[in-house]
């Protein structure tokens, strides 16, 4: 039974409880305040410069950037935030001023980006090559063919399954150029041409599962090879030196976003980064990256400094 009237003792207990609550609340607020102050102090302690680099997935997934960027970060005291996306999204990010430097591989789009005033200039950085990979039993019979466009025409006439990136990435743009050269306009509703709109790694996995052909940059293929069942290089040879098709060369460039158009971009840091990555020393690091692991470089240096040192 609940009592109807409160005694004096009850009042004392309630007051005591009330005071205890107040105390708890006060210490809780003190802790919260201290934590906030600490957090703010931690955030302000290092007025670190940040450079936002929008790049294609291949440079990131291969591990190249993780290998070379720490040198730049310690030498210049700048933190580089890498955003690994397709070339299409990287360029859109540059157009909106959401990135400071782009590292991409689609010449047509790059030139348009600079011409429209979004980028300062386009600097050749490095290159590697594309290969056509497919199931080892090669149902379309393209193994060893020299020209990618001819091999793709044969895949189309055999109606063998072909997986397309379909995501406006640099690799997808090259694939479309090669189809154009082959005189075939692949149709996604035809059944054999599968446009999946995913990254290179996912597309290679897809090709491996579906026994499909696909166009891949050699670096990503090499890096993923051990996880791919029964998917081999059919056009493009063992290394870039064995690749007979000039149309499979894959040049990367670096573009600083135009500070006149996007004033919030850290102009000096962007230029420092671009100059640093084109330096002979950095280019040499690029040229040796991956050799230990894959027996061949994943990227070949191509800056002006490098070319004048290695005519």
């Amino acid at each position: 039974m609940r009592r109807l009237f409160l005694t004096r003792a009850d009042g004392v207990v309630m007051m005591y409880r009330h005071n205890a609550m107040k105390k708890i609340l006060r210490s809780f607020m003190q802790i919260t305040f201290t934590l906030c102050a600490l957090l703010l102090a931690a955030c302000q302690a290092q007025p670190e410069q940040v450079l936002r680099l929008a790049t294609t997935t291949s440079t990131y997934d291969s591990g190249l950037l993780q290998a070379i960027l720490p040198d730049f970060e310690t030498e210049y005291g700048v933190r580089v935030d890498v955003i690994a996306v397709g070339t299409g999204q990287a360029i859109a990010m540059g157009e909106r001023g959401d990135a400071d430097v782009l590292m991409v591989h689609d010449r047509v789009k790059e030139e348009a980006f600079v011409d429209e005033g979004h980028g300062l200039a386009r600097y050749p950085l490095m290159y590697n090559d594309f290969v056509i990979v497919g199931p080892a039993d090669d149902p379309a019979g393209i193994r060893g063919m020299g020209l990618a466009s001819e091999a793709m025409a044969r895949i189309a006439s055999a109606r063998a399954t072909f997986a397309s990136r379909g995501d406006d990435s640099g690799t997808h743009a090259r694939e479309m150029t090669l189809w154009l050269a082959s005189g075939i306009q692949p149709d996604p509703s035809s059944g054999w041409y599968l446009s999946i709109g995913q990254g290179m790694g996912e597309t290679l996995q897809f090709a491996s599962e579906r026994r499909a052909y696909t166009l891949s940059d050699r670096g990503t293929y090499l890096a993923m090879q051990e996880n791919l069942i029964d998917l081999v290089v059919l056009v493009g040879g063992e290394s870039l030196a064995h690749n007979a098709d000039q149309n499979l060369i894959n040049p990367y460039s670096v573009i600083p976003v135009n500070p006149a158009r996007h004033p919030q971009t850290p102009k000096e840091v962007s230029m420092q980064f671009v100059e640093w990555i084109l330096l002979l020393d950095t280019q040499e690091q690029i040229s040796t990256f991956g050799v230990d692991q894959y027996g061949q470089p994943l990227f070949y240096p191509d800056s002006d400094h490098w070319r004048s040192a290695h005519p």
Binding site: V85, G86, G88, Q89, A90, I91, A92, M93, E95, G166, D167, D168, S169, G197, Q198, G199
Partner: peptide, 15 residues
């Protein structure tokens, strides 16, 4: 291709 995956794709394309 469904709506949700199409949204991711168009974002990757920069659209």
């Amino acid at each position: 291709r469904v709506l949700s995956t199409a949204i991711v794709l168009e974002t990757r394309r920069g659209n």
